[in-house]
């Protein structure tokens, strides 16, 4: 891992000192054991803060729409910053999504790709799992190597996993509607409406989230389970055709809600119905932005 770390520092140094980037988004050591945290490096002297290890779990793409959006209170001239971002396979897919949805200025964005060996789950690592501490989401990862990268760090990635991610989904689908609703409600009842899932998600960049709209109001702000269910249905479904299953929402949730059970299913349905996987190609139109006259097969779904 330290090989990648040195290379990343070199690349960052180079980008900042030549002016190709004003800001490098990377990872630095956290204040708690077995954590890193996002790091905003703005000068060449600070590149030593950058690290690369098995705890670089945050999806840094979450910061991109905000950095490239014109500040609301600003008057007069504004030029978007030149940003470089360090991405793993999953993060790169988020960046592809941002490019397609016009949330970034591609000319001013430099993508530094690091083929990923998989990130550790701190709980597993703390329990002494040693080499088997990889997070569940990484064990099921299909795209460890970034699909888009202006600069690719030369390290070997973990091999892409098979279809492990669907095993739990299939098991769930075999249950009765009542059982499924019971599981869904039980998970969602843990929700404290902190909206960390939304804030951590790179795809959730709406200026005003649907749940915060008041004229008219979609669902209440209180802890009534019905309103909370509505929020989760809405937020997760807004990811249809966009969610890259990076697990940022799962990691951010303080209550440990099993969001993966639903995000993975959504991704699977998109693949099944539209033969589309989000974040692999900048040119492929997102399925819910495209139409097809001849998809008779969909009629059976309705």
């Amino acid at each position: 891992m330290s090989d990648a770390e040195n290379k990343l520092r070199e690349v960052a140094q180079d980008l900042l000192s030549t002016g190709r980037a004003e800001l490098v988004l990377g990872y630095e050591n956290g204040s708690l054991p077995m954590t890193t945290r996002p790091c905003f490096v703005r000068s060449a002297e600070d590149v030593q803060r950058l690290v690369w290890n098995e705890f670089c779990t945050n999806n840094l793409a979450v910061y991109l729409p905000g950095l490239f959006a014109r500040p609301a209170n600003l008057r007069g001239e504004w030029v978007p910053p030149k940003v470089a971002i360090i991405v793993k396979g999953c993060d790169a897919r988020s960046v592809v999504g941002h490019i397609k949805e016009n949330q970034v200025d591609r000319e001013r964005l430099t993508v530094i790709g690091v083929p990923c060996e998989g990130m550790a789950d701190p709980e597993k690592a703390a329990a002494g799992a040693g080499g088997n501490a990889l997070a569940d989401v990484c064990l099921a990862c299909t795209n460890p190597t970034p699909e888009v990268a202006d600069i690719m760090i030369e390290v070997k990635a973990r091999p892409a996993a098979g279809d492990d991610r669907l095993a739990k989904i299939r098991e769930f689908e075999a249950k009765s509607p009542a059982e499924r609703w019971a599981y869904f409600t039980e998970e969602v009842s843990k929700c404290i409406r902190c909206y960390a899932c939304r804030q951590a998600c790179p795809n959730c960049y709406c200026k005003v989230c649907f749940i915060d709209q008041g004229k008219p109001r979609w669902a209440g702000a209180g802890s009534d389970i019905s309103d909370t269910i509505f929020f989760h249905i809405g937020r997760i479904f807004h990811q249809a055709g966009r969610c890259v299953e990076c697990d940022a929402c799962v990691r951010a949730c303080p209550m440990g809600i099993d969001l993966r059970m639903f995000t993975v299913k959504l991704g699977e349905d998109v693949k099944d119905l539209f033969d589309y996987v989000p974040g692999l190609s900048v040119d492929e139109p997102p399925p819910l932005c495209a139409v097809d006259r001849d998809e008779e097969n969909l009629n059976t779904e309705l």
Binding site: R37, P38, C39, F40, V62, Y63, I192, C194, Y195, A196, R198, Q199, A200, A252, P254
Partner: peptide, 13 residues
Amino acid sequence: ADRCLSCGICTFV
């Protein structure tokens, strides 16, 4: 606060 996600967890816990 550069990296703050404004998620609000801190205020809730």
